[in-house]
Computed example of a mutant assay.
Amino acid sequence: MCDPSQKHVLLVFAHQDGKSFNGALKDAAIDTLRSLGHSVEVSDLYSQQFEPRATKNDIRGPLQDPDLFNYSEEGRLAYRHNCQSLDIANESDKLKRADLVIFQFPLYWSSVPAILKGWFDRVLCDSFAFDFESQNVLDQGFMKYGTLRMCGFDVLPPQISYGTKLVEEPTRQQYLKDWKCRLQNIFSEEPLSLPKLSDFDHKSLMLHEENGKKRVSSIGHRNNP
């Protein structure tokens, strides 16, 4: 009989070298979560040579409109008709199995690396990760707003390791210790409070006065080099 306290975690790793501090944080998460009885699956994007570009190659079979390629529409139909490329389908299956998703990445220009952005672009497609026609979140802002919450994630605060190339080894070890400590109770954390689209006036995109403060809620663990 399945133990409801045991969860399945997907860790999406977006660093070129597993021996990096990002790699150490990844390994710490895997070891800690497994020691607690949870199962962990890893998408190592660089090792997988994950293709970040969204192209016609993502659709198997004939296109809906071969004369004017619309990636969003073609991707939506490909998912509905089971015609996605195999690498996208594999990542989608991993997401379906996950109770928690951890994004482990270095911070590049205040954003995620291109390979992880490509993962978002290709894997989180319309009809699988969200329904564009009935989306209920504001489609703007950084990863927490315009990506994760839009796709229905309960978003947890990020775990940030600052200046890992500049700090001394005891500080890096403390980062690892803090991360392991947080993971002990990660499934009981309160999600962040993010606004829904229904909280905004559709014409002005301003918050309705009565919804000035409202609550919403995956975790992105980023390493700030």
Rank of each mutant, 00 (worst) to 15 (best):
F50D: 01
Q16V: 12
I219G: 12
R182H: 06
H208V: 01
S161F: 13
G220L: 13
R97H: 15
W109K: 07
G141T: 07
N185Q: 14
L205D: 06
Q84A: 11
L100Y: 03
C181Q: 13
L124Y: 08
E41I: 10
S39T: 15
D65K: 03
W109H: 11
I59N: 01
D199G: 04
N223L: 12
D87W: 07
Q173A: 08
P157G: 12
I219S: 13
L124N: 01
N185T: 14
F153K: 03
F142V: 11
S20Y: 03
D201A: 02
Y175W: 08
V40S: 01
Q184K: 12
A129E: 00
P157H: 12
P157D: 15
D154E: 08
Y175R: 03
L77I: 11
A54R: 12
S85I: 09
G212F: 11
S39M: 10
E190L: 11
E189I: 04
L156E: 08
Q184C: 05
Q184G: 06
F142P: 13
A54S: 13
S218V: 10
K117P: 01
D201Q: 02
Q135N: 00
L45K: 06
E51V: 08
Q84R: 14
L86M: 11
L36M: 10
R53D: 15
N70E: 13
F21T: 04
D121A: 05
T55K: 04
Q49I: 03
L176E: 05
K196C: 08
N136S: 04
K56C: 03
K19Y: 10
A14H: 02
R172P: 00
T164G: 05
A28W: 04
S47G: 15
G163T: 10
P66F: 02
L86P: 13
Q6K: 12
A28L: 04
A28H: 09
S217R: 12
M143N: 12
N22E: 13
G141I: 07
Q140K: 15
F132V: 00
S218H: 10
Q174H: 09
N82L: 08
D44C: 02
P4L: 06
K180T: 14
L116D: 04
N90W: 10
T171Q: 14
F200V: 01
G75N: 07
R182K: 10
V12S: 00
L138A: 14
D93P: 02
L183P: 04
G37S: 02
F132W: 08
